[in-house]
């Protein structure tokens, strides 16, 4: 059995509504303490920027995109979101460990191979990474946190992400069903 919950012996996830309230409370706490919401893609950008800075410093300094994050010799990894994402890793791991979901596996539909799934995941990642920079945030930073503050950008991004995903769902059904 790959799914074995060491506490309850079942594989059940938390009730989605309860999990939603938990997530919302964390988000609210973040707003209350720091005045900003949650995010993930921003931390990944910090990783990319610092990598580019190490490999090609001159290039990073002159590019319009990278330079604003490394101006005045500041370290892009020294940012709020990076620490928050480290927390996500730990939190996810804790939850997975408590619920007995720690396994090395590739999740995919029986219709496709693991290899294809990995390729698709990379392709999806490239698109998502690109889109998150274009849209100034991902589902957590722009859509979820944006919606919580009732910002127009949040609603538009949320509609665009889920609307497009619904539109294209039919063409990719073999990967999931």
């Amino acid at each position: 059995m790959s799914h074995h919950n060491y506490i309850t012996g079942t594989t059940k996830y938390m009730n989605p509504y309860v999990a939603g309230i938990l997530l919302g409370t964390v988000l609210l706490l973040s707003f209350y303490l720091t005045g900003r919401g949650l995010g993930a893609s921003g931390a990944m950008k910090s990783v990319v920027v610092s990598a580019v800075d190490v490999v090609a410093q001159d290039h990073a300094g002159t590019s319009g995109f990278y330079s604003k994050y490394i101006a005045d010799g500041k370290n892009p990894l020294n940012s709020w979101l990076v620490f928050q994402v480290l927390g996500v890793l730990v939190g996810g791991f804790l939850s997975g460990a408590l619920a007995g979901r720690l396994t090395w596996k590739t999740e995919h539909s029986p219709n496709i191979t693991s290899r294809k799934r990995i390729m698709l995941a990379i392709a999806g990642g490239v698109l998502f990474g690109f889109g998150s920079q274009f849209g100034r945030g991902c589902t957590s930073g722009a859509a979820l946190s944006g919606m919580a503050t009732l910002s127009l950008a949040g609603f538009v991004t949320m509609m665009a992400i889920f609307g497009t995903a619904f539109l294209f769902a039919y063409f990719f059904r073999k990967n999931w069903i």
């Binding site: 938390m14 009730n15 309860v18 309230i21 938990l22």
Partner: peptide
Amino acid sequence: MRSTILTLGIIMVAFFALLI
């Protein structure tokens, strides 16, 4: 599940009480 809801409820009430 009911116990989870109860625990969460207590945490949230405590959180708001602290804020107040």
